[in-house]
Amino acid sequence: MSIRLLSPIRFSVAQIFSALVVLAVLCSCASPTAHAQRSVSKRFPAGKNVRVELKNISGTITVESWNRNEIKITASLEAPTANVTPKLMGECVSIDVMGDNRGRGDVGDVNFKIQLPQDSSVDIETRRGNITVSNIRGGLVRAHITSEGDITLSGISASQVLAQNTIGDIFFDGDFSRGGTYQFQSTKGNISVRIPSDSAFRLVAQAPTKKIALNEFWNNGFKNLGDGRKFVGDVGDGRSSVMVTTFQGSITFLRR
């Protein structure tokens, strides 16, 4: 063994080349700057009517309620040049990634996590990326994705809910309140609405032929307009207004 160790070891060109390739791959994976993400976090005291407005460009956005009387915004930034400056205006916390980064070139993904009291209103706009909002019971929940991304709204009890995307699914699990308005629209996504069986609303549902499944919420009072592509009717006393539209996907109503 000792003799073997002391004697020169022969490497073929192929062996050296593959060793170099492996080394290069390892180095790039281990490099601390290769995928470094900067994180920014800011807290604001919450007043009575909290409203958070977020205008993002790209990245995932998660909004959830918590029991503290404050708003916490955590942003993880992909590009070192990106800038995120949440501002407090009256009782509204506003984050404008687009405005904050004008002229800075490509700012990559900015992923947000927002924690706030459950009675808050949330207004989110982004160009791309998923949006998840859970357990919010304020006046407004708006999630608008210009292009692609899934929208998941769960545990929502707001008087106005608006969700829109182009490619991606929309899932709503919550309650329709009396006099409230609810709009869900996708170009190429499936829309699922999960609500209690005693929900009462006026529905306008539009989707390609045979792609609307109202299940338990179907009744004979529904008008079939446009050869099964549009249904209009009341469920219960129609106390809230619901509009669901998908150009290429399906619509499904589920009982909770």
Partner: peptide, 13 residues
């Protein structure tokens, strides 16, 4: 713009 953003003119709080 203020109204749209829910800014109240009378800052009671």
């Amino acid at each position: 713009h203020f109204r749209k953003r829910g800014v109240k003119m009378e800052q009671t709080t």
